[in-house]
Structure formats: structure tokens, C-alpha cells
Amino acid sequence: YWITCCPTCDVDINTWVPFYSTELNKPAMIYCSHGDGHWVHAQCMDLAERTLIHLSAGSNKYYCNEHVEIARALHTP
């Protein structure tokens, strides 16, 4: 949970406070499906809480801010 998930990541173990109602003692993470995949903080991706809950409940693929354009290009005929 205490990783630098992207170039603009500002989640710090020493200063972090809950942002989403689902967070208690660690930041919400979401899995990016690009390549071998990697974890990113939901807050760093500017996800709305409703979107985070929807993604967490389903089996939808998610692409982080850095990889979403690549994913779109691969799926565009």
C-alpha cells in the first residue's frame, strides 16, 4: 500500500488520511490491467468513490491514467 504508484503519487505513510469511506487504515488500491498489471492508489487516479466501488465489485478491467490511452489505441480498429 505504501508505494509510489505513479509519477504524481502523493500517498505517504506519514501523512496519509482516509479519503474514501471504505478506507480505514490503508489507502484504496485498484489493479491496472495493462501488461503484467500493477497496483495504483484510487486517490492518485482521481477515481470517484462510486466508480471505485463499482470497479471493486465487478470483474471489469481498469487501466490507470498512464495506460488508458495505450489500452484505447489497442482496442480501436
Rank of each mutant, 00 (worst) to 15 (best):
A28M: 05
T22H: 15
W16L: 03
W16M: 00
Y1P: 00
T15G: 14
C9L: 01
A57N: 14
W2N: 15
E69I: 02
A57K: 08
Y20M: 03
E49C: 06
V17L: 10
Q43A: 03
C44R: 00
L24M: 04
W2C: 04
A73G: 15
Y31L: 12
G58V: 07
N65D: 05
E66C: 13
I3T: 09
S56Q: 11
I30K: 15
A71M: 08
L55E: 10
Y31D: 04
P27G: 00
V17W: 08
W39E: 07
L74F: 15
C6K: 04
L55M: 11
M45E: 05
S33R: 07
I13G: 06
H75Y: 06
D10H: 11
M29V: 05
W39A: 06
T4I: 11
I3D: 12
C64S: 01
T8N: 14
P27A: 01
A73P: 13
Y62C: 03
L47E: 04
P18M: 02
C6S: 15
E69G: 12
T51N: 06
D46I: 07
P77W: 05
A73W: 09
C32P: 00
Y63M: 07
H75R: 12
H54Q: 05
Y62N: 02
Y63C: 15
M45S: 05
A28V: 07
N25G: 12
H67A: 04
C64V: 02
L52D: 04
I70R: 13
T51C: 11
A48I: 13
C5R: 02
P77C: 05
C64W: 00
K61Q: 15
N60I: 10
A48D: 10
M45K: 06
R72E: 10
Y1Q: 04
H54R: 10
N25I: 10
H41G: 00
I70F: 12
V17N: 01
V17F: 15
Y1N: 05
A73K: 15
H54A: 12
H34L: 09
E69Y: 04
C44L: 01
T4M: 06
R72I: 08
L55W: 09
R50P: 15
P7L: 10
M45Y: 04
T51S: 11
F19D: 15
F19E: 06
I30L: 15
N65R: 14
T22Q: 02
N25Q: 15
I3S: 08
H38A: 00
R72G: 13
A42M: 04
V17E: 14
T8G: 05
W2E: 05
L55Y: 11
T4R: 12
D10V: 15
D46C: 13
R50H: 13
I3K: 11
Y1D: 08
W2S: 05
Y62Q: 04
H67W: 02
F19S: 07
H67S: 06
S33E: 13
H54C: 12
T22G: 03
T51G: 10
R50F: 11
L52A: 07
A57T: 08
V17M: 08
S59R: 08
T15I: 09
A48H: 05
N65F: 07
N60P: 08
Y20T: 01
A28D: 04
I70V: 11
S33V: 07
T4F: 09
K26V: 09
V17S: 12
H34M: 10
S33P: 08
G58K: 10
V68G: 12
S33K: 08
N60D: 12
G35R: 03
S33C: 10
N60G: 11
C9P: 00
G35N: 15
G58P: 12
A42Y: 02
I70P: 05
N14G: 14
E49D: 11
R50K: 13
E69H: 11
D46A: 14
M45N: 11
H67M: 02
G35W: 04
E49Y: 08
I53L: 11
D12N: 12
V11M: 05
H54P: 12
E49A: 10
L55A: 08
E66F: 06
A42R: 03
E69T: 12
E49I: 02
S33I: 11
T22C: 08
Y1A: 06
T4C: 08
R72T: 14
P7R: 01
V68Q: 02
H67Q: 03
F19Y: 14
R50G: 13
E69S: 14
D46G: 11
S33Y: 12
N65L: 12
W16E: 00
A71V: 12
G37V: 02
V68S: 09
N65T: 12
L55K: 11
V68R: 07
Y20G: 04
A73C: 15
E69P: 15
N60W: 06
C44G: 00
A28F: 06
A42T: 01
T15V: 13
T51K: 13
C44A: 00
L55C: 13
L24C: 13
A57M: 07
Y62M: 06
D46M: 14
I70S: 07
E66R: 08
H38V: 01
H41Y: 01
Y31N: 04
L55H: 14
T76V: 09
Y62W: 14
T76I: 07
S59V: 09
G35C: 01
G35I: 09
A73V: 05
S59F: 09
Y1C: 13
V40D: 02
A48M: 11
E66H: 05
T8P: 07
F19V: 05
Y31K: 13
D36P: 12
V11G: 01
Y31V: 05
M45G: 03
P77N: 04
K61N: 08
I13M: 04
A48P: 13
Y31Q: 14
D10K: 09
H34T: 05
Y63F: 12
V40W: 00
I53P: 07
L47D: 02
D36M: 08
R50W: 06
P18F: 02
Y62F: 12
N60A: 12
P27D: 00
A42I: 02
P18I: 00
E66D: 10
F19R: 07
E66P: 05
S59W: 05
S33L: 09
A28C: 08
W39H: 07
N65A: 12
N25D: 04
T22R: 05
N65P: 13
A71H: 06
Y63L: 10
A48L: 12
F19K: 08
L55G: 06
V68K: 08
T15H: 13
E23I: 00
E49M: 07
K26E: 08
T4S: 11
A28L: 09
C6M: 03
R72S: 14
S56T: 12
W39M: 09
H67Y: 02
L47M: 14
Y1L: 09
L55V: 09
G58A: 10
C9H: 01
I3V: 10
C64Y: 01
D12G: 11
S59H: 10
A57E: 11
Q43I: 02
M29R: 14
N25P: 01
P7S: 14
H41N: 07
H67D: 03
A42W: 01
S59P: 14
I30G: 01
Y31I: 01
E66S: 11
D10M: 04
A48T: 13
T4H: 05
I53H: 09
H41R: 01
Y62P: 01
T22S: 15
P77R: 15
H75S: 10
L24V: 09
S56E: 14
H54N: 10
G58R: 07
C32H: 01
Q43P: 01
H75D: 15
S33N: 10
W2Q: 03
N65H: 12
A28W: 08
V17D: 04
S21E: 15
E23V: 00
V11L: 06
N65S: 14
I70A: 13
Y1T: 09
N65W: 13
A73Q: 12
N60C: 06
A57P: 11
F19W: 14
Y31R: 11
G37R: 00
H34V: 08
S56C: 09
S56A: 14
V68M: 09
I3Y: 06
M45W: 03
G35L: 10
Y31G: 04
T22W: 08
T22P: 04
W39S: 06
D46E: 10
T51A: 11
E49Q: 11
V17P: 03
G58C: 10
R50C: 15
E66N: 03
F19L: 11
H38Y: 02
V11E: 00
W2G: 03
S56V: 12
F19N: 15
Y20Q: 02
T15F: 14
E69Q: 15
G58I: 12
N60T: 11
W39T: 06
I13C: 10
V17T: 03
H54Y: 06
A28I: 07
A28P: 04
F19P: 02
V11R: 01
L24R: 08
C6R: 03
L24W: 04
I30N: 12
S59A: 14
T8S: 15
C32S: 01
I70L: 13
Y62A: 04
H67P: 03
H67C: 11
C9F: 01
S21D: 07
L55I: 10
K61T: 10
W16A: 00
A71W: 06
H67N: 04
D12E: 14
L52P: 03
S59K: 14
N65Y: 04
S33Q: 09
S56H: 11
P7V: 12
L55R: 08
L47F: 07
H54I: 07
Y31T: 06
Y31C: 11
E23H: 01
D12L: 04
S56P: 09
L52Y: 04
